[in-house]
Design a protein around this nucleic acid. Structure first.
Length: 363
DNA sequence: AGTATTTGACCTGC
DNA sequence: GCAGGTCAAATACT
């Protein structure tokens, strides 16, 4: 049996280690050469520090899973990761213990964050059924609900097994308005398979199934250009026809499904291959959400944040903000577990042209 | 053949 | 005991 680390995580760690080793070698080579003054050495040292801290964080996050997520949350503001980025052994062991306890499925269910969205679809445009939120879902059940006209569908992340992603969602069609779907999300995605927006197929119930199929198929679709074009073309249409309501939200929990974070930085997806940490600072780390989400002024923006920017959270750090904190453009950094961690690190400078999306980069 | 969906049975919490 | 949620075998789809 595996130790719980996903293949991607192991790879990520091994890549980080390799990178660190290479940086060390580079430092040895540079030290002593007259053309490389202190600044070079300092840069290299910072690179090494970054690698080290990244590894620490990754290891602390452990095998992806919601459980640990909560553990990290509990550590805020007293994050288990100290200022210098190291972990106390006691805390680390405690974390491991907690994680084991939380492996219990029923416990897991209880603690998973939950929030609801309402999605209106417009049959005139052929966009019927729930929207694609950028993730791959697999239907695992359907149930007639007492007093409800339509059955409730249960979905879980397609990558539950392969990536230990425990995100689930329930789709309930509204009694009053068949065009309205109430989607209850549970848990956060820790998988790395967020996809871009995919146009919804054309028939209400069937669509629910089909759109999931589409998602999965698209993952294997090599015709990325077409997909991207399609996404762009349909984006404006979708924005015009989908209304996302974030009402009746539990204040203690995340208010928006589109903010599903994925596993780690390495798993982050961006339509823009020129991805830099500065973007992260603005969108992901400073509050954990893309900027458009931060503005509640326009409901459209909610949808627009759907998935081009699937944001990381160190293996699923649960952002236990109040709603007001979430929507504030000046979200307090000090309340964010991510930021607690991030601020404890040296600034990391990443080449904007660094090929994160290079095939095999994480392989 | 591999993967996703369906659906009745089973489990869990209230 | 009941309703909601999940499992898993059967079935459908590609």
């Amino acid at each position: 049996m595996e130790n719980g680390w996903s293949w991607e995580q192991k790879t990520l760690i091994s890549e980080l280690i390799q990178g660190m080793e290479l940086a060390k070698q580079l430092r040895v080579q540079f030290s002593g050469t007259s053309s490389s003054p202190e600044s070079t050495d300092m840069l290299l040292q910072r690179i090494l520090n970054s690698y080290e801290k990244a590894l620490l964080i990754l290891r602390w996050s452990g095998p992806v899973g919601q459980s640990h997520t909560m553990r990290v949350t509990a550590g805020v503001p007293g994050s288990p990761i100290s200022v210098n980025g190291s972990l106390g052994s006691d805390e680390f062991e405690k974390g491991l213990k907690d994680q084991q306890e939380l492996n219990d499925v029923s416990k897991k269910r209880k603690i998973l964050p939950r929030w609801t969205d309402q999605v209106r679809v417009n049959s005139e445009t052929g966009l019927e059924g729930p929207h694609d939120d950028g993730y791959s879902w697999r239907k695992y059940g359907q149930k007639d609900i007492l007093g409800a006209k339509y059955p409730r569908s249960y979905y879980r992340c397609t990558f539950r097994i392969t990536q230990n992603c425990w995100a689930t969602k329930q789709v309930q069609r509204s009694d009053e308005d068949p065009n309205l779907f109430e989607i209850t999300y549970r848990g956060r995605h820790t998988c790395s398979h967020a996809t871009n927006l995919v146009p919804a197929p054309s028939s209400p119930e069937k669509q629910e199934q089909k759109h999931n199929n589409n998602n999965n198929n698209n993952n294997n679709n090599n015709d990325n250009d077409n997909q991207q074009k399609q996404s762009l073309e349909t984006l404006s249409t979708i924005r015009n026809n989908l209304r996302v309501a974030t009402e009746n939200l539990d204040n203690r929990e995340m208010a928006h499904p589109f903010s599903f974070p994925s596993t780690s930085f390495g798993c982050m997806k961006s339509e823009n291959s020129h991805f830099s940490l500065s973007e992260l600072d603005n969108s992901a780390l400073l509050g954990g959400f893309p900027q458009p989400f931060l503005s509640q002024a326009s409901p459209e923006s909610n949808y627009f944040t759907a998935s081009p920017f699937q944001v990381s959270n160190f293996g699923g750090v649960y952002m236990q903000h109040s709603e007001s904190e979430i929507i504030s453009a000046h979200t307090s950094a000090t309340n964010s577990p991510i930021l607690d961690i991030d601020f404890s690190l040296d600034p990391v400078e990443i080449d904007p042209n660094f090929p994160f999306d290079t095939p095999g980069f994480f392989s």
